[in-house]
């Protein structure tokens, strides 16, 4: 049986290999701290196996193998936050092909270049829908494992299609993308962590009581509106739907819509996130999506793109509310 932990170990290994490449990359002015960041992140993946095992054993003694304490991992996470939060991570000059060579190769390979990329979702969907019951994969993890297998398959197809022989080439190109994303890559996982801490500390219960006081009766529709509009407004204020998600979900989405009113989990949460995305369309706080294009396009009105998006964003918020109210319960 293929376990999801194997996938985590593979990702950890990829991060560590990329960190070693970074340490050797003299074009990166912060190569040592960058390597420390990505290397440490890589090590958290196998270490996490031990922490998860300890949790499994605590729930059901003897159900998992070797264990590790969670506190050192917590220290590592704080170290990652310090390295990323105080700009200790940098990037090197990407080793890539010239414009001319890329154009020539695009002309040669044409739309065959899209085949490897399509392999990833194809394999993942096949695994999730047809092989889920086969006993081949750990229960409930078929999609994630399928994604990993899809990437391995896509890499093989990609090397075949492009005629690339060296495995170091995709690792190098992947590292450049990793460096370009920087600490933004870690933000979603850290926000998931924050959401868990909110829940442990009782933020959800607190906001839940307030919401129950404010919302008259047990109106499903008002609760849906509160969740979607809350996601929208929080995102407008913070410029980041990811940051709004754990707050609003711990407060209303989970306790009220799912636990109290028995909403469909996937529908409530997916649509809630998209209500946040509708907010991202309308806010100057999401500078990289809304303000940067204005300056790239040399617009006099830096709010031009937002004005073009605002009616769409509000209409989509309404769609989110209607679809959630009609289909999630």
């Amino acid at each position: 049986m293929i376990k999801v932990e194997w996938l985590y170990w593979l990702i950890g290994l990829i991060f560590v290999v990329m960190a070693l490449q970074m340490a050797a990359d003299r074009t990166n002015p912060k190569r040592w701290t960058s390597a420390a960041f990505w290397g440490l992140l890589g090590l958290t993946f196998p270490y996490g196996t031990g922490v998860v095992n300890a949790e499994l054993n605590a729930a059901k003694p003897g159900s998992a193998g070797w264990t590790l304490p969670a506190e050192p991992l917590g220290v590592a996470v704080l170290a990652l936050i310090v390295l990323a939060g105080f700009n200790f991570i940098g990037k090197g000059v990407p080793v890539t092909t010239t414009d001319e060579r890329r154009q020539a190769s695009a002309a040669r390979l044409g739309s065959k270049l899209f085949i490897p990329a399509l392999t990833i979702p194809l394999v993942a969907i096949v695994c999730a829908s047809f092989l889920d019951e086969s006993g081949l994969f750990e229960t409930g993890k078929a999609t994630l494992i399928g994604l990993g297998l899809g990437c391995i398959a896509a890499l093989a197809v990609g090397m075949f299609v492009t005629g690339e022989k060296k495995i170091s080439v995709p690792i190098h190109s992947g590292r450049s993308m990793l460096e370009a994303m920087g600490s933004a890559l870690l933000l979603p996982q850290l926000l998931a962590v924050l959401g868990s801490i909110f829940a442990v500390a009782g933020v959800g219960t607190q906001v839940g009581t307030i919401v129950n006081d404010v919302l008259p009766g047990n109106s499903k529709y008002l609760a849906v509106i509160a969740y979607c509009v809350g996601m929208f407004l929080f995102t407008v204020i913070m410029g980041n739907a990811f940051a709004a998600f754990p707050v609003m979900t711990a407060a209303i989405g989970w306790p009220v819509l799912i636990q109290q009113m028995h909403g469909n989990e996937a529908a409530v949460l997916a649509i809630g996130m998209l209500a946040g995305f509708s907010g991202t369309l309308c806010t100057p706080m999401a500078a990289n999506f809304n303000i940067v294009p204005a300056s790239l396009l040399e617009l006099k009105d830096q709010y031009g793109p937002i004005k073009a998006q605002l009616p769409t964003g509000i209409a989509l918020l309404v769609c989110n509310i209607v679809i959630m109210a009609l289909f999630a319960f």
């Binding site: 998860v52 969670a70 050192p72 991992l73 994604l147 890499l155 993308m177």
Partner: peptide, 29 residues
């Protein structure tokens, strides 16, 4: 709490595994 929830939410960063494939394809145009 940081350690446990970080270990539990490792799946969030799984998307990084896509990068080498996309990087390779971008290199080839």
């Amino acid at each position: 709490a940081f350690g446990k929830s970080f270990a539990d939410s490792r799946s969030v960063t799984v998307f990084a595994i896509v990068l080498p494939v996309i990087g390779l394809l971008e290199r080839y145009g």
